[in-house]
Design a binder for these strands. Sequence first.
DNA 1: GTTCCGCATGAATCGATAG
DNA 2: ACTATCGATTCATGCGGAA
Lengths: 277, 277
Amino acid sequence: MNGLWIMDIYLGDARFVLQKIGDNTVDLIVTSPPYADQRKNTYGGISVDEYVDWFLPISKELLRVLKPTGTFILNIKERVLNGERSTYVIELILKMKKQGWIWTEEFIWHKKNCYPGKWPNRFRDAWERLLQFNKTKQFNMYQEAVMVPIGDWAKKRLKKLSETDKARDSSKVGSGFGKNISNWLGREMAYPTNVVYLATECANRKHSAAFPEELPSWFIKLFTRENDVVMDPFMGSGTTLFAAQKLRRNSIGIDIVEEYFEMVKQSVQPMQLCLFD
Amino acid sequence: MNGLWIMDIYLGDARFVLQKIGDNTVDLIVTSPPYADQRKNTYGGISVDEYVDWFLPISKELLRVLKPTGTFILNIKERVLNGERSTYVIELILKMKKQGWIWTEEFIWHKKNCYPGKWPNRFRDAWERLLQFNKTKQFNMYQEAVMVPIGDWAKKRLKKLSETDKARDSSKVGSGFGKNISNWLGREMAYPTNVVYLATECANRKHSAAFPEELPSWFIKLFTRENDVVMDPFMGSGTTLFAAQKLRRNSIGIDIVEEYFEMVKQSVQPMQLCLFD
DNA sequence: GTTCCGCATGAATCGATAG
DNA sequence: ACTATCGATTCATGCGGAA
């Protein structure tokens, strides 16, 4: 057993660096690109109007490098402009579909601790989109890897299963899951839902991450197995890559900001040494 | 004081019934229209392809009857078709903007207890969209009406104020954010976020789209005052209307299904008598 | 080793003021 | 008129040092 997983990092524009990566080589892409008009100090700040045109050439390359069984998770949220939500994210979904992507699902990241503030016409924004795209319908998904302890509500619910529930015939609702509820009795673990309820990591760490490591970890466990390849074309401080490393997956990271690139590079060496012990 | 709030209900197709309603007369529209290709038995099933074209004439009428200070809350979720999320909802947003609507915000209804089920390629769907549209940017919003108890952290935190807490301590990173903890002394309540975390209510088995009364109640409190007018053009079993009645608002309901219309009609009389006591 | 407690931080947004 | 910058507002979390 090797005990070392490859972690390739590149400095440069994702659009061009991606061209060096072979077709059908990546099992999972998890990324959080710079949102429009945000993070201006680090990334140049892509305007709302340019955003879709900026992203499409990159997503085209991502489609190429992804394996047919692979998955692309895109973490993004549109900002408010003139008192109104921008539409560039939903326009991007439509354009990516035309590009050949399958828009399989939209997970929600419900943030436990969202940004504070008060405005006369809106509340604090406590959620972000986690868009799941696939290349084919035969993508890998390892649901057992992310099962959660069953909640109290479920225990109560299952204790007093009504007769109609036990005998429920799927034709009533047409969704095909009705029959098997009583099979759940006695189980301790349940599958999660498409809402991920997590806090942002904000406190006194050296480098604040765009998203908490638990987020990429969750998707890495869900969509890959050990020794698979995980990619983040906007790696930032490398959260996705380190999550992959810890979970014994190989990883590829790209970033255009030299500071981030160097930072990740510095951290790679000690980790690899550590694994050799 | 009257003690009686008007509850107007109509049997018929929303598109045509709405023509009887005057311009700029409604303060809030809260509705959960039939989703595409679902509830075929009750609503005749609008297909995914027809959905946007079916809805736009209705939303045009809604724009007309809404007051300039009013709000339209649309509860909707796209269904899965051939293993992929349909795009009719996001296409609808884009078309409604062209129609003159302002897409102010997207609230999320995070369902506490979504129904159990298992599929090989997706998890249970635990959220729905609550799209907020407005006619103008000067809409009414009464945020104090829906405040929630402040988190437990505050109790400990505010017992002892450190020196930095008492003075404004401007942020070091230049994020422009500071704090003045002493502002919070004596504060018991906080403003909510744009994620509404509610249980689904299975009380109304007859109406195929279960819509817990707390949901319309929340928006009615947030966007209207007593004696204002609330409308639901797809009232179903009348959840929105009864919520409005309880909160002392007038209401208008429309439904094309005679069974629902009669059901709501039956319930109206006893309620009004009750208020006369 | 635990638990407690102080505290900096965060993909924000609006309205006023200035160029 | 139209854009750019700036100050004001706000809440819950996890880290890290102390008991």
